[in-house]
Amino acid sequence: MDNSGVEELFGGARLMAILRSMGVERSLSVAATAWDLGIDSVEVTIQSPEDVEALRAVAAAARERGKVVGAGTVLTPAHVTQAAEAGAAFTVSPGLDLDLVRASHDAGLPSIPGVATATEVQRALGAGLTWLKAFPASVLGTSWISAMHGPFPEARFVTTGGMSSANAGDFLSAGARVVAVGSALEDPAQLPRLAALLDRR
């Protein structure tokens, strides 16, 4: 269930946008803000039929701009099917469910499962997964990222939950490969600071 293909999807970008239950029009607007800023990867959470329609619309807009859209908060095989049919390129889950990862993999969508403990990281890596969602990142803290890289240097963490321009740089410095931001994209004061992070390697 190798998910190393996520690396190519992200293209080395350090930020990803998360659109959570915004509806179609607002999702399209915030996605456009992210793309215009230089954030190429967008995740649309799918917890309702309206969310799935938003994913479908954003995925269509992304194709026109050569961008990538994933489906977030994927909790069931039915969500995987909805994500694939709506045009998602990958899936993201809040927790580690290897059966769900397998269903996503079988649908042709690399899966990024959530982890919050060393046990979960080890189990995910043992299953061939290197890209992992550290969630909730603001609760885990930057020291968690640094600590996990000691025994698990091959892990590639996407930090999600409570991320903003105020702490994104700290998580990148701690070793996160990608920081996922949500509401920060709707705060004009944060946009210049987020843009400054895009060139970090």
Score class of each variant (00 low, 15 high):
Val178Thr: 00
Asp2His: 11
Val80Glu: 04
Leu132Phe: 10
Arg156Asn: 14
Ala134Met: 03
Ala180Thr: 01
Ser104Cys: 02
Phe90His: 02
Leu9Asp: 02
Arg102Leu: 01
Glu7Thr: 12
Leu194Met: 08
Ala116Asp: 12
Glu120Arg: 09
His79Ser: 07
Val44Gln: 14
Pro192His: 04
Leu100Gln: 10
Ile112Met: 13
Ala86Lys: 14
Ser41Glu: 08
Trp35Met: 02
Val139Cys: 03
Ser173Phe: 03
Asp170Ser: 13
Thr159Phe: 05
Gly11Lys: 03
Leu140His: 04
Thr159Asp: 02
Gly95Glu: 06
Ala13Phe: 02
Arg193Lys: 07
Asn3Gly: 05
Met22Ser: 09
Arg156Trp: 11
Val58Tyr: 09
Arg63Trp: 02
Thr33Met: 10
Gln190Leu: 11
Gly95Thr: 14
Ala189His: 02
Ala57Gly: 08
Leu140Asn: 03
Ala168Pro: 00
Glu50Ala: 14
Ala174Ser: 13
Gly162Arg: 13
Asp97Pro: 13
Glu120Met: 13
Val92Ser: 14
Gly141Cys: 09
His105Cys: 06
Arg200Thr: 08
Arg65Ala: 07
Gln190Ile: 01
Arg201Lys: 14
Arg200Gln: 14
Asp106Leu: 03
Leu98Phe: 10
Leu132Ile: 12
Thr45Glu: 00
Ala176Lys: 02
Gly87Glu: 10
Met16Lys: 04
Leu96Phe: 13
Gly175Tyr: 09
Pro136Thr: 12
Val52Lys: 05
Val24Pro: 05
Ser164Gly: 04
Ala124Val: 05
